[in-house]
Amino acid sequence: AVCQRCQARFSPAERIVNSNGELYHEHCFVCAQCFRPFPEGLFYEFEGRKYCEHDFQML
């Protein structure tokens, strides 16, 4: 399997985020606008991209 964002493979010891069947490295699972991790894992999706609450409100 490969990361949805960076397309790199996962190492066996690595923590992986699964979002609706899409797999991400922990450091790749970030807001599409500000590139920060999601507070408490909370995000909003718009047109296939994931956003933090602040950036989602700015759309």
Rank of each mutant, 00 (worst) to 15 (best):
C52H: 03
F38H: 01
C3E: 03
R5I: 14
F29Q: 07
F56H: 08
Q7K: 01
Q4I: 06
E53A: 06
N20L: 08
L42I: 14
G21Q: 07
F43K: 04
F29V: 10
G21D: 05
P37S: 11
I16E: 04
K50P: 07
N20P: 03
P37N: 05
H25Q: 00
R5Q: 14
Y24A: 05
E14S: 11
H27T: 06
K50H: 06
A8G: 15
C28T: 00
A8Q: 15
G48Y: 03
C34M: 03
F29G: 11
V2F: 05
Y51R: 03
C6L: 00
C52P: 00
R5H: 14
Y24N: 03
Q4Y: 14
L59D: 01
H27V: 12
R9K: 15
F10E: 02
Y44D: 06
I16Q: 10
E47K: 05
L42G: 09
E40P: 04
E22L: 14
Y24Q: 05
E14H: 03
F56P: 02
Y44P: 00
Q4F: 08
C31D: 02
E53W: 07
C34G: 02
C6E: 00
A13E: 14
A32R: 06
A8P: 01
V30Q: 05
R15M: 10
S11Y: 07
C52K: 02
F29H: 13
C6H: 00
E47Q: 07
H25T: 01
F43H: 07
L23N: 10
L23Y: 15
E53G: 06
R15T: 13
I16L: 11
P12E: 13
G48V: 01
K50V: 10
F29N: 07
H27Q: 15
R15S: 14
A8M: 15
N20S: 14
Y44W: 08
F10V: 06
R49G: 06
A13W: 04
E26K: 09
C28W: 00
E26W: 02
G48R: 10
G41T: 05
C52Q: 02
Q33Y: 09
F43A: 08
R9Q: 13
C31P: 00
E22Y: 10
Q4H: 13
A1Y: 05
S11D: 14
A8N: 11
G48Q: 06
Q33K: 09
C31K: 00
A13D: 15
E14L: 03
E40R: 13
A8K: 15
Q7H: 12
D55R: 01
F43V: 08
V17K: 13
Y51G: 00
Y51I: 05
C6K: 03
A8T: 12
V17E: 06
H25P: 01
F56M: 11
V2A: 03
